[in-house]
Design a binder for these strands. Structure first.
Length: 553
RNA sequence: AGGGGUGUAGCCAAGCGGUAAGGCACUAGACUUUGACUCUAGCAUGCGUAGGUUCAAAUCCUGCCACCCCUGCCA
């Protein structure tokens, strides 16, 4: 474990308010390291918002010395499962996070129980037999104080006995609860004698049927933090109102080392739904193929789309840490981070997504191999060979019958370079009776061979191509937003789901592509970044992100 | 008798009494066998708003406005 000297701490430059707090705490308390924790509830698949939160916990420990624990916040057996726990661990590992320990809130059930008895003995907790509706009514409203329950005056002895009976299973589910005795008139509703324990007969995925009472978040979380020696408990801003209760529990349960809760704003991305509830609806209604559908903002989804984990972490780091809860980040920021990484790492290949046939009438060469760079930005990436030929495909949009003057691509009687090969000239355009171009007849300039151009012809445009007699059929999955353009998601997929969010394109790829393994990140030159996801009967590429488009008609 | 938070450019976001960082997006231009990348330049006399304090205010004070969160035996 890394620790920091006082001088090192003093020299740390802070970049957000949490770092400032931590630095100040370390200096004041003479700490040489901190301990954080990422505490997901294993009740669903983690999404990009979890990555932001975990990144904060992780990067703080990296920066200030110490470590991060991963803790499953498993206090509601009704919703949690090992499937989700495993999904969380897999996703976080893939994202590149490292933790010191994997703990569970359920590891501490006995200690929590002991804390509860301590509170009862101190006269600070009582068993309430008010039914749920009445208890809710007694809580008061935002503007009116609550009413004290008759149970509030129960003796310590009776409370202790009743709580032990709760644990022993002598009460039905929901019949009684354990409550903290704080202040029914507090303007902070969380302090109006909050529930600490409920009776619940449910099989917990780890503790089975060992317990029939389960602690509430507000009780379990501060205790778990204190037990683990967490120094800084960083959480979502929605828990800001809970902080007084958090501190109350830590103090009254008499923990010596008191963790400090600091809250930050959650991640909102424009046009992206991250609520687990609504993501679940997409999966269950089969509008998407699963939690790992590339359109999903889940970690598995992003990963399937081909977003590198480094790009994901760059993104959540760039977004920053603030308390501005209504900040909405543009998805273009993620795109930018993704392009930055892939620009340096992706293998360049030529793929034609919407082919139009070209015949080079004066070319009779056979099997002429052209050498192309795998990545001109990276000399170490090497080269590969492409076979040139008489019949090729080019992109339909790279030819125009009657283009504007700024158009650099192929036009009647115009010249263009075929990337890595020759300059060609458009001689004749064949069309069907609707006027659609069916084939273009060209001639090539033999002196213009790539790397040894003696032709003296200057062309403005270079386009990609594929050898029609030496290419592979592939499928490209092109994704767009799950929410229809121009509408705002307000909880109803029926009216907002973009049923056009997946387009399957049958494309032509140069031979080299299929010699690469599944999981390769490609740049389809002049088109975008694509991720090879399936090499089975069908070869499928997921579109990760397009290239920036400098030219607009 | 409501309480707790937050407002800096189109979008994120630094800034902590000394005269508005950075990123995304956008606009020019250079380079280019990817209209990508890279490079260069531009992009808030302005910090929710109205006052006040000060030689000096996004920063301190006061009032107002807008938005978010809180009345689970969920987390």
């Amino acid at each position: 474990m890394k620790t920091l000297s006082r001088e090192e701490v003093e020299n740390i430059e802070t970049t957000n308010f949490i770092e400032s707090f931590i630095k100040q705490d370390m200096l004041e308390q003479g700490l040489d390291h901190i301990v954080t924790r990422f505490p997901p509830e294993p009740n669903g698949y983690p999404h990009i918002g979890h990555i932001k939160a975990c990144n904060i916990d992780y990067s703080m420990a990296q920066k200030f010395g110490g470590y991060m624990n991963l803790r499953m916040d498993d206090t509601n057996p009704l919703k949690e499962s090992i499937e989700y726990e495993n999904a969380i661990i897999d996703s976080l590992k893939w994202a590149g996070f490292k933790w010191e320990n994997v703990y569970h809130a359920s590891d501490y059930y006995q200690k929590m129980y002991d804390c509860a008895e301590l509170l009862i003995k101190k006269g600070l907790a009582y068993v309430d037999d008010l039914d749920a509706d009445t208890l809710s009514k007694y809580r008061g409203t935002l503007t009116r104080p609550g009413i004290e329950s008759p149970s509030r005056n129960r003796s310590i002895e009776e409370n202790l006995q009743m709580f032990r009976d709760m644990k022993a299973g002598k009460y039905k589910d929901g019949e009684v609860v354990l409550r903290a005795k704080i202040d029914m008139a507090s303007p902070n509703i969380n302090m109006r004698d909050p529930t600490l324990y409920r009776v619940l007969r449910a099989t917990h995925y780890r503790t089975g049927d060992e317990w029939c009472i389960y602690p509430m978040y507000d009780f379990a979380h501060p205790i778990s933090d204190a037990i683990e020696g967490i120094t800084h408990s960083l959480c979502d801003i929605e828990f800001e109102n809970h902080r007084p209760l958090y501190n109350w529990v830590v103090n009254e349960c008499e923990f010596e080392k008191k963790p400090r809760q600091i809250e930050f704003a959650r991640l909102n991305i424009e046009g992206t739904v991250t609520s687990k509830r609504y993501l679940r609806q997409l999966v269950e209604s089969q509008r998407v193929f699963g939690w790992d559908d590339p359109r999903m903002p889940t970690v598995d989804g992003l990963r399937a789309r081909g977003i590198p984990s480094v790009a994901l972490r760059d993104f959540v780091t760039n977004v920053g840490v603030t308390k501005v809860d209504d900040a909405v980040v543009s998805p273009e920021m993620l795109d930018s981070c993704t392009r930055n990484i892939l620009n340096n790492t992706a293998t360049r290949v030529m793929v034609v997504l919407d082919p139009i046939k070209i015949t080079i009438t004066n070319y009779d060469g056979d099997g002429e191999m052209m050498t192309v760079e795998n990545n001109s930005n990276d000399a170490d990436a090497g080269t590969h060979e492409v076979k040139f030929g008489k019949h090729i495909f080019i992109e339909r949009e790279d030819f125009m019958m009657d283009p504007p003057s700024k158009y650099h691509r192929l036009r009647p009687d115009g010249y263009v370079r075929l990337r890595g090969a020759y300059i060609i000239k458009c001689d004749e355009v064949k069309t069907d009776n609707q006027g659609n171009v069916t084939e273009i007849l060209c001639s090539y300039i033999p002196e213009s061979r790539s790397g040894n151009d003696q032709s003296g012809i200057k062309v403005k445009g270079t386009i990609h191509w594929v050898n029609a007699d030496d290419c592979d059929d592939i499928y490209v999955h092109q994704y767009s937003n799950l929410i229809r353009e121009g509408v705002r998601f307000e909880g109803d997929w029926d009216t907002t789901f973009n049923s056009d969010s997946l387009k399957v394109i049958h494309a032509k790829a140069e031979k080299y592509v299929l010699s690469c393994p599944k999981g390769t990140h490609f740049q389809f030159v002049r088109k975008g970044y694509y991720y090879l996801t399936t090499l089975d009967e069908k070869v499928v590429f997921n579109s990760t992100v397009s290239l920036k488009e400098g030219f607009k008609l």
